[in-house]
């Protein structure tokens, strides 16, 4: 058995905040951990023995999607929007992922595109995954950008997901996931963060959380 911790990572408080409009949090996870989607099951998603042996904390987030690894080598973009009418999630995935693509392009990253339902790829390899939680009038968009985490570390703890986007085509983590460092981009996370915040601010009003 693996202990699933209460989701108390830095963006957890967004859902409990009293903000009236929107809040954006672009943050670097403070330690290596695993976050499962709302109905994820450890036995199906994780190499349980390895996770236990290495004492990796496991959380369950409120949003959907497959299990992800967070670490100091990733950057998380969490955006909460209140009083948002119920619209197609695709609209939000496209809108926010395009902002991140634009930010990365501004930093010189090439061959970026949206892929699957909610991923961003460099050529055919995934560099960002995102998910959404929403209730009647609250939207929480959550994305993980891989700056320099290794695919080996991901494959070490995560099993091949039961469901996968068509473009993955059965590829194991090592052949499917990449990072900015992998692709030769040596970018400071603080710089990426500031550009993402700037891009967001172009057409969204939000409270900026550090």
């Amino acid at each position: 058995m693996i202990e699933i911790r209460k989701y108390d990572l830095p963006d957890a408080r967004l859902l409990e905040s009293n903000c009236d409009d929107a809040e954006l949090l672009v943050w670097t996870p403070p330690f290596f951990c695993i976050v499962m989607g709302q109905s994820g099951k450890a036995a199906e998603a994780l190499h349980v023995e390895t996770v236990k042996k290495d004492k990796i904390p496991v959380y369950k987030r409120p949003s959907g999607g497959e299990t992800v690894v967070l670490s100091g080598h990733t950057l998380v973009i969490s955006y909460l929007k209140k009083n948002e009418p119920l619209r197609s999630p695709k609209l939000y995935f496209n809108r926010y992922n395009e902002k991140i693509i634009a930010a990365l392009r501004g930093l010189g990253v090439e061959h970026l595109s949206r892929a699957g339902i909610s991923d961003i790829c460099i050529e055919s390899k995934k560099i960002l995954g995102s998910s959404i939680y929403r209730d009647k009038d609250t939207l929480l968009y959550h994305a993980v950008l891989n700056i320099s985490e290794t695919a080996e570390n991901i494959g070490k703890y995560l099993k091949h997901p039961a469901r996968e986007p068509g473009y993955r085509q059965g590829r194991p983590h090592r052949d499917f996931v990449t990072s900015l460092t992998d692709r030769g981009y040596d970018l400071n996370p603080k710089l990426i963060r500031s550009i993402i915040l700037k891009k967001w601010a172009e057409d969204e009003k939000f409270d900026q959380k550090l």
């Binding site: 949003s63 959907g64 999607g65 999630p89 995102s130 959404i132 209730d135």
Partner: peptide, 29 residues
């Protein structure tokens, strides 16, 4: 189906959340 907000016999209004669903990438009412 993650959870039902309503029961048989309950009055509902248009736009009122009736169920929370999870798909590949989204949890939504």
């Amino acid at each position: 189906i993650l959870n039902w907000y309503i029961k048989k016999g309950r009055q509902v209004k248009s736009g009122e959340a009736i169920v929370k669903m999870e798909t590949d990438k989204v949890v939504t009412d």
